[in-house]
């Protein structure tokens, strides 16, 4: 396996990149401050990234941000979807993250039991 193989992906993916609007349909932002990292934010971010990759969700982008300022509810995740309220999830872990991917991101139903704020 070497990096040159990325060129194949480039040829294959170029089309759906062109189709894909500049703006992703859904943006998932994981808080990665000190307390978030200490409480497992990396595993949460990794779960989102891998699930999005595995399901080939080309219209979803996962990014990280700094401290969210509510250390007791870290790791925290915000889900931004155009035209819908922002949902903030707290005390996330890989299992919860998988459920958010399936129920919220794929099926459009936010997981109310993990949500700590809707903005």
């Amino acid at each position: 396996m070497n990096l040159e193989e990325l060129k194949k992906i480039r040829e294959k993916a170029q089309k759906d990149v062109e189709l894909r609007q500049k703006q992703a349909r859904i943006r998932v932002v994981v808080g990665m401050g000190t307390s978030g990292i200490a409480s497992g934010a990396r595993e949460v971010l990794k779960t989102f990234v891998e699930e999005i990759g595995r399901r080939n969700l080309t219209d979803v982008v996962v990014t990280q941000t700094g401290e969210k300022g509510l250390a007791s509810r870290e790791p925290m995740v915000e889900v931004f979807e155009e035209g819908k309220p922002v949902v903030v999830y707290g005390s996330m872990d890989p299992e919860r993250s998988k459920r958010v991917v399936v129920e919220h991101i794929v099926n459009g139903n936010p997981v109310s039991e993990y949500a700590i704020e809707v903005m």
């Binding site: 396996m1 990096l3 040159e4 193989e5 990325l6 060129k7 992906i9 480039r10 294959k12 993916a13 170029q14 990149v17 990234v49 891998e50 999005i52 990759g53 595995r54 399901r55 080939n56 969700l57 080309t58 982008v61 996962v62 990014t63």
Partner: peptide
Amino acid sequence: AEVKELLGGVPINHPEVISFLSKY
């Protein structure tokens, strides 16, 4: 930076690239 250059306009967070990098 090298990865991005090889990818041309395909973003590094494209699902297929993520899967590739994970295996790599």
